Computed example of a mutant assay.
Amino acid sequence: MSPHLRNGRLLLFVALIFILVNAEVPQPAVEESIRLDDALLAEPRPTPGRSIFFHETSCYDAKNKNLNILKLTARQVCAIESAALHNPNFQVFVLFVDRKYSLVVDPNVGNRSIQQPLFDAILSYSNVHLRRLNLWRYAAGTPMEKWLREGNLFRSRYLVSHISDFLRYLTLFRYGGLYLDMDVVVLRRMEDIPPNYTGAESDTFLAAGIMNLAASGFGHQIAASCLHDFQTNFDGNVWGQNGPEVITRVAQQICGTKNISVMQTNRKRCLGFKVFGRGAFYAVTSDKWLNFFNPHKLEETLARTKDSYAVHVWNSQSEKQPIKIGSTCAYAKYAEKNCPRAYHAAGEYF
């Protein structure tokens, strides 16, 4: 072998060694310590009548192929934080239906720079607890167990929405307390409001996005009536049939009237069940949802909601409406004050 050939091979060998030594060795994914324990087993467990519940059911959305990692939006985190911030003596439980969720947050999958700060924001509150929920175990031993196994729920055209409807009434039956939709912002303390209430959404319907029932007595009877109505009148082809229409029908039976105004003004007629007017939770109606995002409507919107306990921002219409951090729209102002950690963790857009 010629000296030139030997020298060439030697240089090639040295170059390969240099590449191997300096190459980045792939590191295994490191799992964050966010684990979801079973809602029925983990401590602390909900304190009957003094807990707040949110449900995350999007794992049943067949259109979404990226549901293997635990995920919340900044606005969902805002709802959770606002509830925890204003109600420090209530435990806040976020229940994830566990069909497709992994039990950890993997920082090497998805956009960790967005997700981890959001989880940090809510988990910085000692009264916030993330839990997983299995539908069949959760329904076992309740009036919904047999009905769930019959499968009508899973044939719904609006599966995600109707599972959410199913769970809100089942959770209130199990524990009582306060149920909140993920698209609310709590503005004031709600701990001291006497139990057994909901709010009017319009002149014809009550809403199911904010409901409170006592864990026993009359409140538990109302929850049982809601479960009975849910089964009896379930229709998977009608979006609102199994949510707001359930509590509306039950309230009509309790109050002996279909007149929402009469329900609001005569609590004795409703045997102590409180129907708040629209100003309490739904001061901005669904057809005016853009007012939350329009800086020119800031003063009007803040004035309209100045006595509200919470605002419902109508996520089904508004979820794709962007809010740049620092905006002067009403939603941004609510977030700055009532969910400051989520708002500042959101990134460029909330």
Rank of each mutant, 00 (worst) to 15 (best):
G219F: 01
G219N: 04
G219T: 05
H220R: 14
H220K: 15
I222D: 01
I222Y: 01
I222P: 00
A223V: 06
A224Q: 07
S225R: 09
C226S: 06
C226M: 12
C226Q: 04
C226H: 03
L227I: 10
H228S: 10
H228R: 11
D229S: 08
D229K: 05
D229H: 05
Q231E: 15
T232E: 13
T232F: 10
N233L: 03
N233I: 01
N233F: 07
F234T: 01
F234V: 02
F234D: 02
D235L: 02
G236W: 00
G236T: 01
W239M: 11
G240H: 14
G240M: 12
G240T: 14
Q241Y: 06
Q241G: 06
N242L: 04
N242C: 12
G243K: 00
G243Y: 00
P244D: 10
E245P: 00
V246T: 15
V246I: 15
V246M: 03
I247L: 06
I247R: 00
T248W: 06
R249M: 07
V250P: 00
V250S: 00
A251P: 02
Q252H: 13
Q253M: 12
Q253C: 08
Q253H: 12
Q253W: 10
I254P: 00
C255M: 05
C255E: 00
T257R: 07
T257N: 06
T257W: 10
K258Q: 15
K258A: 13
N259Q: 11
S261H: 13
S261I: 12
V262K: 09
M263V: 08
Q264M: 14
N266A: 07
R267Q: 12
R269P: 03
R269S: 05
C270D: 04
L271M: 10
L271A: 13
G272S: 07
G272N: 06
F273D: 02
V275E: 00
F276C: 03
F276Y: 11
G277Q: 03
G277T: 04
G277L: 01
G277M: 02
R278K: 15
R278A: 13
G279T: 08
A280C: 06
F281D: 03
F281A: 13
Y282M: 10
Y282Q: 09
Y282D: 07
Y282E: 07
A283L: 02
A283I: 02
A283C: 07
V284W: 01
T285D: 15
S286T: 12
K288N: 14
K288P: 05
W289H: 14
L290R: 11
N291G: 08
N291Q: 14
